[in-house]
Amino acid sequence: MTGLTVIALAVIGFFAFQASAAQDRAEKHTPSAPESSPSSKDSSSGKAEDSKALPADSGRGTRVVYALGRERVWLVGKGNKVQRTYRVVPSTVSPSPGTYKVTSRSSQITGSDGVPIENVVRFADVDGVTIGFSAAVDGSMPNQDPGRKTGGIREKRADGEAMWVFATIGRPVVVVR
């Protein structure tokens, strides 16, 4: 075989492995119920608001919703039904509010902060910084250095697993304030 053929077969094998692993995880995954919803004070409007309620301005259809100010994600399925919601640790670089799509995914890599991460779901690029959701393999959450540009929105491992199963390539990601 030529060198290019060997490389092509290796790449195909790698993608087949990733697809197989994602399918195995999808078959084993049962979405957990949305978190309970105690009320809290919304600092931007000064009125009481359910901090876990899906933002009104977050679109329609099956999508991921990321609220910058609330540091929260919603996985929204058919019928505008929230399948899961959870808190995240934001990156130091944030996307502008708007609608994006999942552009790429990686099952395991090393994050820009040097920490091994898994279930990476990328959806935006801001000033050369790639923005996406991920979970640290060791379960740690970052202590953000505001002087360092990072795009990883960190999740707990179980939340990262749910995101991985839900947010396939092309899935809309709606970012709201």
Rank of each mutant, 00 (worst) to 15 (best):
G111L: 02
R105F: 10
P97V: 12
E155S: 10
T130N: 06
Q144I: 11
D113H: 02
V121G: 09
M141C: 08
F133R: 03
G152H: 06
Q144N: 14
S91L: 02
V137L: 07
R122M: 11
S112P: 02
P95I: 12
V129L: 05
S112N: 02
A135Q: 05
R148D: 04
G152R: 07
E118P: 00
P116T: 13
S112W: 01
P95V: 09
G128F: 08
S94T: 10
A158C: 05
R157K: 13
D138F: 02
G132A: 05
S140D: 02
Q144E: 12
S140A: 08
P146S: 06
I109Q: 12
T110W: 02
V137D: 00
R154F: 09
V120E: 10
A158Y: 06
V93E: 03
I117K: 00
V126W: 01
G147D: 08
T150F: 01
I131G: 01
G147I: 00
D127R: 07
A158M: 07
S112R: 06
R157F: 08
T130K: 11
P116W: 03
D127A: 12
P142W: 03
I153Y: 04
K101R: 15
S94Q: 09
G111Q: 01
T130Q: 13
S96Q: 11
S91Y: 01
S94E: 03
P95E: 07
N119A: 03
R122Q: 14
D138N: 11
S91N: 06
G111S: 14
V121M: 11
R148F: 15
V129M: 07
K156L: 11
G160L: 12
A124H: 07
R154D: 06
V115F: 02
S91C: 04
V129C: 10
P97C: 13
K156G: 09
T150R: 08
P146E: 11
Q108P: 00
K149W: 10
G98P: 03
V121H: 09
D145S: 13
S107A: 14
G160C: 11
G111K: 00
I153H: 04
K101V: 14
I109M: 10
T110V: 15
N143V: 14
S134Y: 08
D127C: 04
G132N: 06
G139E: 08
G132R: 07
S134I: 00
S96Y: 00
G151D: 07
G139W: 06
Q144V: 09
R122Y: 12
S91R: 00
T99Q: 12
P116E: 10
P97T: 12
S140P: 06
D145W: 11
G98W: 08
S107I: 15
A158G: 08
N143S: 12
V120C: 09
S134R: 05
A124W: 05
G114S: 12
S91I: 04
D125A: 12
R122G: 11
V126I: 13
A135F: 02
R122N: 14
N119P: 01
K156D: 15
Q144F: 00
E118V: 13
V137P: 00
S104P: 04
E161N: 05
E161F: 01
T103F: 04
G139M: 04
S91A: 15
